[in-house]
Amino acid sequence: MLDACQDHRPPCQGTDADLWTSEDHEDRQQAAEACGYCPHTAACHEYAATNRERAGVWGGRDRTAQPATTRRSA
Rank of each mutant, 00 (worst) to 15 (best):
E26P: 01
Q13S: 13
R28V: 04
E46I: 13
A68I: 15
Q29H: 07
L19R: 07
A4K: 09
T21E: 08
Q66L: 12
R9Y: 07
R61H: 13
T21Y: 02
H8K: 14
Q66T: 06
A31R: 01
Y47I: 09
P10L: 01
H8N: 14
G59Y: 06
H8T: 13
R61N: 11
D27R: 00
R61V: 15
C35L: 04
E26K: 10
R63K: 15
W58N: 03
D18T: 08
A68G: 13
R63N: 09
A42H: 13
L2C: 00
W58S: 02
C5V: 08
T15A: 15
W58I: 07
D3C: 00
C12N: 08
A42M: 12
R71E: 15
W20I: 00
R28T: 06
G59W: 09
T41P: 01
R72Q: 09
C5N: 11
A49G: 11
D18L: 02
Q13D: 14
D62A: 04
A65Y: 11
E53N: 13
G56F: 00
P39F: 09
Q29R: 13
H8A: 13
H40Y: 10
H45Y: 12
D27E: 12
A17M: 02
A42Y: 06
Q6D: 09
M1N: 04
L2E: 06
A55C: 12
M1H: 04
D18K: 05
R71T: 14
C38L: 07
Q13K: 14
A17H: 09
R72A: 12
G36F: 03
C38R: 03
